[in-house]
Design a protein around this nucleic acid. Sequence first.
DNA 1: CAAATAAAAGACTCTTTTATCTTAAATTAA
DNA 2: TTAATTTAAGATAAAAGAGTCTTTTATTTG
Lengths: 145, 145
Amino acid sequence: MVLSKACTYGVLASLYVAKQSENKSYVSIRDMSNELRISFHFLTKILQKLTAEGILQSHKGPKGGILLAREARNITILDVVLAIDGDKVFTECVLGLPGCGSERPCPMHNHWITVREDLREMFSTKTLAATSDDIRELGLRLSIE
Amino acid sequence: MVLSKACTYGVLASLYVAKQSENKSYVSIRDMSNELRISFHFLTKILQKLTAEGILQSHKGPKGGILLAREARNITILDVVLAIDGDKVFTECVLGLPGCGSERPCPMHNHWITVREDLREMFSTKTLAATSDDIRELGLRLSIE
DNA sequence: CAAATAAAAGACTCTTTTATCTTAAATTAA
DNA sequence: TTAATTTAAGATAAAAGAGTCTTTTATTTG
Ligand code: SF4
Ligand code: SF4
């Protein structure tokens, strides 16, 4: 798996929040966990991390929940991925070897870094706004149902 | 991590065996585990799988060990990856969603399948022969040392 | 044949990831 | 100001991945 489970949940949740963000009210984690079919407490932890990283803002108490901390068009999926999984995927060797690299590349290296960069590019060119808009237009579901 | 630890070990071991394959004698797993700095018993398990999958052949007893079951130029790194990790990486959705796909793609889908295919291409165009030759020429190490 | 060697097989341990459960803290609204 | 609501925090549990250890089986060689 390229992204951890926690990370894919974080991306799906971020897209869900972006989608709901016309209504200015906070998005309930409980509702979201029901709709996305993600364990409430597990999701809560992931969102706490996104809140700590400044991607989401949260509010306790009745009518509380979460919101995007910035505008959806200023948050990329890469931001979410980096907040949860870090940059391991974009820096690691595909063979798991430490200490080698561009100076003395193996035959895999040059191809590998293009794949790696393409992956990063993919995440960095998609904003939450654009992606959730497209998902809505195309009618794609964010969960199993 | 794109490949499991077991899978990267399997690739490194296969390349090691390919490199040693001028000497017609069996390659000792013990020696290999020492040189590659991989736990002997863990490596043994991985190699058993490669043997079961018809990529390696083994021989018990004194002077025993393992050999490539086919010629090194007829085994690709993809063969080794598929034998150990299966085709998950090349078939899974990057967002972990089941049931959606090309019929109703999300904005990520089209880019994702090119990345996925590029990854597969990378593994499938490298044979053990070519890769181990290149590694030898370039003096790349297969382990931490 | 007996002893030594080396892979095969399987039980077991440790770590990380994923998931659940409980309690605490903050906020709202009656 | 009290009760209800909702996120925060942290302990615990289950599952998967990674690694270790022991016993068995096959083979070679003296
Ligand atoms: S040179 Fe090869 S082994 Fe080294 S980091 Fe690059 S891909 Fe990995
Ligand atoms: S359409 Fe999007 S969510 Fe569905 S499989 Fe493709 S990348 Fe994954």
